[in-house]
Simulated scan of single mutants.
Amino acid sequence: MQLPTPAPGQKIAYSTDSLQFGELRLPQGKGPFPVVVVIHGGCWLAQYNYQYMNHLSAALTKAGYATWNIEFRRVGNPGGGWPGTFLDVAQGVDFVRQLARQYPVDSKKVVVMGHSAGGHLALWAAGRKNIAKTSELYTKKPLKVKGVVALAGIPDLASYAMAPGSCNSAVPQLMGGLPNEVPHRYASGSPMQLKPGSAIIRLVQGEKDPIVPVAQPQAFEEKIKRPYSEIQTVLLPNAGHFDLVAPTSPVWSTVEQVVKDVLRK
């Protein structure tokens, strides 16, 4: 079933580049509303943009959440790749504080949701406070997020980069090299090598995903478990890669429930 194109959100710039913006959607009512920051995937590459997450954003807004669907510079855009892609996402997430000054959104109830490569960036956003001050990715006082919902996320860039596949081959383009060439970059850019902080983490994964293997979330959960974070993999037996972002798919109710559960804790 093809959904009609959702009405656009309010386009708001979080910085000066033409790709540094987000679309804010607000539910009906007075608020303040919890916020889902939405980070799109597409192998970190310029040819894929934020618009494929519009249906997801509109569905979550209808369910009662403010959504902030962010765009950012990617591999192939001037300033994209290392470190620009990461710094844009950091700035976009932190901009929720600014939004809370003008709109009825609650900057203390924030879930970062990302799909695929965006799931990597969402998990990374949760661990930013543990980045060394010497890193190019370090920024002061990152927004504390309540949780992360990674939909087919890629937490381990190093292992993903070494596996065959077109999306896998984009990792060295993003990082400016393979793990053995720029290990310090993977240390601050791969969630697998960062402690995730206090965020609640849910790794939603389709077992039939041909792009991101089930081993990615499972290895991440096994490594970081408590005491660092509350983390759980949610396996969906009959789901593929894009079912997780389609409000018409049979697994969408599970995705919505995961968001609800994270914000309730």
Rank of each mutant, 00 (worst) to 15 (best):
P196G: 05
P32W: 00
K225W: 13
A199G: 11
L263C: 14
P78H: 14
G165F: 02
G189S: 08
K141R: 12
L45S: 07
P8D: 09
P172I: 12
A63I: 09
V105A: 12
G64I: 01
V35G: 10
Y52W: 08
A158V: 01
A122W: 13
Y65C: 12
G41H: 09
V148P: 06
N180L: 10
G9A: 03
Q47F: 15
I70P: 12
Q2M: 09
G153C: 05
N180W: 15
V89Q: 14
P179Y: 14
I231M: 03
G76V: 14
A46S: 14
P78I: 13
M1S: 13
D261G: 02
A163L: 09
S116V: 14
S18E: 14
P6G: 04
A13P: 10
Y186M: 05
R101V: 04
K260P: 04
T67N: 15
G127D: 05
A246L: 03
A58L: 08
N168G: 13
F86T: 11
T233Q: 13
F242L: 01
Q173K: 07
V182M: 01
V212L: 14
Y160F: 15
G114V: 02
K144L: 08
G31H: 13
G76S: 12
S188M: 05
P104W: 07
H115T: 06
S57E: 07
K208M: 06
Q10D: 02
G29T: 15
A122T: 12
M162H: 08
Q216P: 03
L244I: 06
A187V: 00
A63H: 08
Y65K: 05
I12S: 05
T5N: 04
P183K: 02
G79V: 07
A152F: 01
K129W: 04
L143P: 04
G22I: 12
G147W: 02
L123S: 07
Y160R: 05
K30M: 09
E23R: 09
K146H: 10
E221R: 10
G119W: 03
A239M: 06
V105D: 10
A161W: 00
S15I: 03
L60G: 12
L26Q: 11
R202Y: 00
S190Y: 11
D94M: 10
V148W: 06
P237F: 00
S135Q: 15
P179A: 13
T5F: 00
G197Q: 11
A152S: 06
M175L: 15
W124Q: 11
V212D: 14
F21D: 08
N168P: 05
W82K: 00
L178T: 13
L26S: 10
P8Y: 12
L203H: 07
D94R: 10
N168V: 08
V89L: 14
T254L: 07
A152W: 02
A215N: 08
L45Y: 02
A117K: 03
F95V: 11
G165C: 01
V245N: 04
A122P: 08
L3H: 09
P210Q: 13
